[in-house]
Structure formats: C-alpha cells, structure tokens
Nucleic acid binder design. Structure first.
Lengths: 146, 146
DNA sequence: CTGCAACTTAAAGTTCACTTCAGCTCAAGG
DNA sequence: CCTTGAGCTGAAGTGAACTTTAAGTTGCAG
C-alpha cells in the first residue's frame, strides 16, 4: 500500500474522515487525487495529523497549528530535524501551560486551608480593588508578581 | 454599598455584564431585583463568579461548574467549609489535568531527540496498527500502560 | 425636574471545531 | 455486469460560551 485512502488515514490516526476533510479545507493537511477524484494521502500526512492531535492536547487552536505547519518545507517531505524544531516549540508552550496550572493548583491548595476565594485574602481572586493597576480578574494566577 | 450593580460586579470580577446575565440564565449565579427590575448582587456572588473563573482555567465546562455550584447550600450563604470542599474537588481535577500534560511534555521531550512523531517508533503517536486492541489515537498519552 | 449613563429584554449573531445531510460517483469482490 | 461499501461535494446544523443589537426603562447627579 503506497498511499492511504481517507478511511485508512482516519483509522490509523483516530481522526474522523469529516475532520480530515475539514483540516484539508483549512489548509492543515494535503491530499492528492485519484482519476476518480478520491483523496490519497502520503504516509507523511499521518505525521501531520499526529502533530495536530498533540498540539490540540496542549490547547493550541487550529489557527496556530496551521501557522506552525506552514513553517514546514513545502517542496520536500519534512525531515526529523523539521519535526524536532516544531516539537521543541510546542514543548515550550506546553511547559508554560503546565506552569500556569501548577501555580493555580498550589494556590488552590492554600485556599483549601483558609476556605476562601475571599476577595480580601485569597491570592487566587485578587480583585481590581486590590490590584487595580493591573486590571480585573485573578491577577496572581495569570500575571504573578515574578 | 450594600449590594452591587451588574456594572460593579463586572468591574470587580473582570467578567462582562453580558456574561453575567448569561450565567444567570444558566443558573450559575443569582441576583435580586430593584423595584425598577435592575439586578442587585450580594457580595457573596463575587465569590461564585471567582469560582467560575477559576474552574474555567482548569478546563471545566459551565455545565460541570453549574453542577458543582448546585451542591452549595441554597438557604444560607456558603461557609468557608463549603468552598473548601469544592476547592478540594477542583484541585483534584486540576492535578489530573497537570499529570496528563506533564506526560505529554516528557514524551514530547523524548521525541525532540529522535525527531519523530513517527508511527513506528514514537510513544506519542502509537497508532491503531500497533495497539489496535486499545483503539486509535495517541494511546500512550491518553491511556498510559500504568 | 432633567439629562444621560447604566440598566432591561428577547432574539439573533459569532467563533471554533467539527458533524450531518442529500444526492451523487467510485472501486472492488463475486 | 452488478452490487455495495466507501468516497465525493456544498450547504446546513451543532454545541459551547458568549456578544451584539434594537428598542425601551431606570436611577442618580446637578
């Protein structure tokens, strides 16, 4: 089997055919066509789909994923180095996201002791009143004071 | 100031008035009305809104948040203990989410070395071919083999 | 009392990430 | 050849979480 049908790609990637067609419309993946107009995928597309799935896990929008994939070479099959570069980028984003959630967790742990979410005392819910210069919302989580 | 207008609550919580009205329609928060039909919020509502914002950070749907908030007493203002109980629940959910992302990060780190996302070798993208019995998709991340 | 910012409503619109539908055509086994 | 499952298209639908709009009302400062 040289190329994959949309059904094959769907089965191997765990992504529905309708989603694969959608990704193609959005310019995230590519397919060649048979004489009868059916899609045929290079095996390399499987890696693109894998990348999309992983990036989504990290909480990245399709728009951002599209931009990232656009940085891959168009004229040749991406090499390991190409994928490594993208992976490193996502690892960084992922780490940022983990850091935010860990901070949230730690402060929530503190709050369990004080039973708060109190506007007066809780670090999680520091209101505009207290930190007006930095805007509304739970400042300590989103923009911790270094 | 005894109660808050929707504008006050919006400014102090960082949530748009339209979103607050939406939350009310969805049964997440409550307001009393003036003789002229305007909303007035108890200060305790601020805590509910804070809770909603935090839960959303954790990646919880409004539906789940609504269910959680419904477990608070209706006949009295929630105590510290009430909020502690909910907080502990979310801390657990948050931890689960962090664990998934850390696993993803660690495996992505491994992949940076091998430049993969390869279907043959990469733990991130273990296909149906290899682990057919466990369904399609990146199995190692979502359902690690203990 | 007046003016005007802030409030009210219901209904429709928006974005994201897809899925579903209707009405076809294609490809491959018997 | 025939059947049947797989694939095709464009358009419409979905659900989550809101926002926007239009047309009207309220509340407080001056």
């Amino acid at each position: 089997m040289e190329t994959l049908t949309i059904g094959d790609l769907s089965a191997r990637s765990g992504v529905a055919p309708s989603a694969l067609r959608f990704y193609e419309r959005e310019g995230l993946i590519h397919a060649t066509r048979t004489s009868g107009n059916q899609r045929r995928y290079e095996r390399a597309e499987l890696r693109r789909v894998a990348f999309i799935k992983i990036a989504q896990q990290v909480g990245v929008s399709l728009e951002e994923i599209r931009t990232a994939l656009a940085s891959l070479p168009e004229n040749r099959t991406p090499t390991k180095a190409d994928w490594s570069r993208l992976s490193a980028h996502w690892r960084h984003k992922l780490q940022e996201r983990i850091t935010v959630l860990e901070r949230l967790r730690d402060q929530l742990t503190g709050c369990i002791g004080c039973g708060c979410l109190s506007l007066q005392r809780c670090k999680l819910v520091n209101p505009a009143d207290q930190l007006a210069t930095r805007g509304a919302g739970p400042q300590m989580i989103l923009n911790p004071p270094d």
